[in-house]
Design a protein around this nucleic acid. Structure first.
Length: 201
DNA sequence: TTCGGGATCGTCT
DNA sequence: GACGATCCCGAAC
C-alpha cells in the first residue's frame, strides 16, 4: 500500500457543517505530524463532534469565548488542543466559519507511518495501544497545547491528508460527558465499523 | 486569590 | 473495577 500524505484537505472543507466534516471527510483520513524532525501519521478511526452553540458538553457552550476556547471561534481548519487531568493533551479539528465554535475531537487512530517513533514517545510496544485514546494519540504524534493550539492544519507541522475512500461508521454516545445533561447521550461519537483501533466500543 | 473538577490513562487489586 | 497522578481553566469569593 502506497500512501500519499501530501493530499491535504482544502481549507474550504473545514468550513462546512461539522457533522459532514467529521463523518465524510475526517473519518478515514490521515492525521499527519512533523514534530521534532519525525514524521508520524495515522488513519482517523474514531472521533466526536462538539457544537459550540447548543451542546452543553462543549467547552465553548453557550458560544462563550474565553482564553481557553478562543481558538474554537476561529475559522475552521486549525487545531484546538487543550490539556486535562493534569497530564493529557487532546487534539480537536476546528470546524465552520469564524465566530462559530464547533470542533471534532479525534479519539483514535490506526498507526500508519512512523510507528517506531510512536512507540518511543509512548513508551509502549503494543501497536493497539499506541493511538487508541485522545491522550494517547497526542503523545504518539508529539502534539501539545503549548506548541500546537491554534496550529494551521493546512501547514507543514500538523495536517490532515485525504483518505482513499469513505467508510461505513457506527454512532454512539460520547465518552466522559455525563455532566452535559440532555446532551450527554447524543450519539455524536463516530467510528469506523469493524476497525480494531478504537478507544471504546 | 482560592478552589473544584475535568472531552484520560496506567497501574494495581 | 477502582484509584491516583497533576495542571489549568473558569467561577466564585
Amino acid at each position: 500500500m502506497e500512501y500519499d500524505f501530501s493530499r491535504r484537505l482544502e481549507k474550504e472543507v473545514y468550513l462546512q457543517d461539522v457533522f459532514t466534516l467529521a463523518k465524510r471527510h475526517l473519518l478515514g483520513a490521515y492525521l499527519c505530524s512533523n514534530v521534532g524532525g519525525c514524521f508520524t501519521a495515522g488513519r482517523i478511526t474514531e472521533l466526536e463532534v462538539y457544537v459550540g452553540s447548543c451542546d452543553k458538553a462543549c467547552h465553548a457552550w453557550p458560544n462563550k469565548l474565553t482564553p481557553r476556547t478562543a481558538t474554537m471561534f476561529r475559522a475552521g481548519g486549525c487545531a484546538y488542543v487543550f490539556f486535562v487531568y493534569g497530564m493529557h493533551n487532546q487534539f480537536n479539528v476546528v470546524a465552520g466559519p469564524a465566530g462559530t465554535a464547533d470542533a471534532v475531537l479525534i479519539r483514535a487512530l490506526e498507526p500508519v507511518a512512523g510507528i517506531e517513533v510512536m512507540r518511543r514517545r509512548r513508551g509502549c510496544e503494543d501497536i493497539r495501544r499506541l493511538t487508541t485514546g485522545p491522550g494517547r494519540l497526542c503523545r504518539a504524534l508529539g502534539i501539545t497545547r503549548q506548541e500546537h493550539d491554534g496550529e494551521d492544519l493546512c501547514g507543514q507541522t500538523l495536517w490532515i491528508a485525504k483518505g482513499e475512500k469513505t467508510y461505513p461508521y457506527a454512532a454512539r454516545p460520547r465518552i466522559g460527558v455525563d455532566y452535559a445533561e440532555e446532551y450527554k447521550d447524543k450519539p455524536w461519537r463516530f467510528y469506523i465499523r469493524g476497525n480494531p483501533f478504537i478507544s471504546k466500543k
